[in-house]
Amino acid sequence: MDNGMLELALGIMLGLLGLGAGCAMIAGIGPGIGEGNAVAKACEAIGRQPECKSDVTSTMIMGCAIAETTGLYGLIVAILLIFVAPGSFKDILLTAVGKK
């Protein structure tokens, strides 16, 4: 395999990794909707019973932080794809074409 083809292969690989990272962040939609629901309900609860404000707020923040988890999984996958995967994938590619 000549150098031009190798550059093309590396370029395609990096581009697809970037696309994959972008797709992984679709996971951000779910927590967004979920946390929005949680905050809306908390606002309703505080409106009904203003004396419970501190309890409701602390429970809401706790629930929001837990609901965030699925989004964070997506974020970790995206970060791995951008910062970690290119190095190891490049090694795999170079080994496969026998340049290393």
Partner: peptide
């Protein structure tokens, strides 16, 4: 796994 990744992901995302 979820406990570890929740904590790690939050701190790492802030740093990034």
């Amino acid at each position: 796994v979820s406990m570890a990744f929740r904590h790690y992901g939050n701190i790492l995302s802030g740093a990034v």
